[in-house]
């Protein structure tokens, strides 16, 4: 399981763009293109390298009707999947 204390950020080979609350990602190395739904797109937007997984989950709780526990589990899983696809990278928060 991905640590909730890491900060996700776009992978250098990934390009993303929001359109009508959804995100379209292009993975340059493979040429793969994918669409993220509204919550997935929101997590992608928030994964800018300044927030931890926990921070992102807290913002998701504020914006969507979901429990803190559920949000954290979902964000962890989603970020893990995007890391596996090389759409995101993760690194420890500065100072930790």
């Amino acid at each position: 399981m991905l640590s909730p204390d890491v900060c996700p950020a776009p992978h250098p080979q990934a390009a993303g763009r929001m359109i009508d609350n959804e995100a379209v990602l292009v993975l340059a190395d493979s040429g793969q293109v994918m669409v993220l739904n509204e919550t997935g797109g929101r997590i992608w937007e928030l994964a800018d390298g300044t927030r931890t997984v926990t921070d992102i989950a807290r913002m998701i709780v504020e914006e969507y009707e979901v429990s803190e526990e559920q949000a954290l589990a979902d964000v962890q899983e989603f970020v893990y999947q995007l890391v596996e696809k090389q759409a995101l990278i993760v690194f420890p928060k500065e100072g930790q």
């Binding site: 990934a14 390009a15 359109i19 959804e22 379209v24 292009v26 669409v35």
Partner: peptide
């Protein structure tokens, strides 16, 4: 098609250039 789906489908049909992240953007 939804705008996101349309965008993804169109970008998938742009040959050569989406193999570079900056260009894909």
């Amino acid at each position: 098609l939804s705008p996101a789906r349309a965008l993804a489908e169109l970008v998938s049909c742009a040959p050569f250039v989406i193999t570079d992240a900056a260009m894909a953007q």
